[in-house]
Design a protein around this nucleic acid. Structure first.
Lengths: 162, 162
DNA sequence: TGGATTCACTTGACTGAGCAAGTAAAAAAG
DNA sequence: CTTTTTTACTTGCTCAGTCAAGTGAATCCA
C-alpha cells in the first residue's frame, strides 16, 4: 500500500490520472442514459431497478433492499418506483410479513420491458467499457473500483442506505 | 485489443467489473460533493470551474472554452457561472475581440476562495482515490479511463461542447 | 398493556440540469 | 451593402434528486 507525498496540489501523473477519472465521471453516465433513453425510454438508474427485480426470487424486493442494490437513497427510489409503477412495469404492495415494508414487484409487462432493453444496454457496456479493455485491465479495474469504493464507505461512517 | 464473446448478458467477471464501475459512478461524485460542500460550499463542478480559471492566463476564459474544460454543456455552465457571479467569485464581460463571446473572469475573491478550498479537496482525492492505489494501478487507471473516454467520443459523433 | 421510539417508507419544498426556443453579434452569400 | 446563416451564449419549462418533515406500523420498555 503506497503512501506517496501529500503536497497540496495534484501534479504530473497524479493530476492526469485524476483528470481522466473526473472526465469519465462526467461522460459515462450520460452516455449510458442516452442509449437507454433513446432505445427504451429508461434511465440507467431505472434499468438498474428492473435488473435487480428481474434477478430476485418472485421478482420482488423490499424497497429498502432494492435501494441498497441500486446504490440509491430511499427517497430517490421511491420516486423512481412511482414512475415505473405509472407505466405499469412495477407494482408496490405492503409486505405481508411486516406492514412497514413495501414490496416492489416487477410486473409481467416490466419483465418484458427489461428483456427488450437488455441486449442494447449490454452491447453499449461492451462497446464503451469492457470491449476496449484488455483482460488485465478489466481485472485491474475491478480491483481499483473495489479499493475506491471501500475508501468511500470507510470515509463516511458508512450509513445504511444513506 | 480483445474482442471477447458478446452474448446478451453480462456474466461472471465482466458483470463484477461492470457492477463495480457502476457503483463507483454512483458513489464517488456525491462523496466529492459532500466534502466540498461541507468545507467550502462548493460543488465539485463549481470547484472545477474555479480550478480552470485559476490556471488560465489572466484568470479568464471564454465560456465555450471553459465549458469544454469543465466537461459541461454551455447551458449548465451558464447557470453555474450565474451562481458563482452572485457570490462574487466570478464576473462576466463580453469578449472585446468578439462580441458574441463572453469572458468568465475569476475575481480576487474567487482566487482566494479557490485557494482555501483546494487543500481539503486534494486531500480527499488522495484519501479516496490516488492514495488507495498502487503506482501500477494509477498508471492502469489512467490508460483505462483514456480508452473508455475515447470510446464515448467515438460513439456519439463527438459534438463540440455537446 | 400503554406510551415512547424506531423503522420503512412517502411527500412537499427547493435546487440543479437538460432541452428547446430566443437573442444579439459576427460571418457568409448574393 | 443587404440578407441569410452561424455562433455564442442565455433563459423558460420541466423533471429528477435531495433534505427535512410527515405517516403508519412494529418494537421496546416500564
Amino acid at each position: 500500500m503506497p503512501d506517496r507525498d501529500r503536497t497540496s496540489a495534484l501534479e504530473g501523473e497524479d493530476l492526469e490520472t485524476w483528470a481522466g477519472l473526473a472526465t469519465l465521471l462526467e461522460w459515462l453516465p450520460p452516455a449510458l442514459d442516452a442509449q437507454l433513453l433513446r432505445d427504451s425510454g429508461l434511465t440507467h438508474f431505472e434499468y438498474g431497478i428492473l435488473f435487480a427485480l428481474a434477478a430476485a426470487p418472485e421478482r420482488a424486493l423490499r424497497m429498502s433492499v432494492l435501494a441498497d442494490y441500486a446504490n440509491s437513497s430511499l427517497s430517490r427510489l421511491s420516486r423512481a418506483a412511482s414512475r415505473l409503477e405509472s407505466r405499469g412495469w412495477l407494482r408496490r404492495t405492503p409486505d405481508p410479513a411486516d406492514g412497514r415494508s413495501t414490496l416492489a414487484i416487477l410486473t409481467e409487462l416490466g419483465a418484458v420491458k427489461y428483456g427488450e432493453a437488455t441486449p442494447g444496454h449490454v452491447d453499449t457496456v461492451q462497446r464503451l467499457v469492457l470491449g476496449v479493455l484488455t483482460r488485465a485491465q478489466t481485472r485491474q479495474l475491478r480491483e481499483i473500483t473495489r479499493r475506491i469504493t471501500h475508501a468511500i464507505r470507510a470515509e463516511e461512517g458508512w450509513q445504511q442506505t444513506r
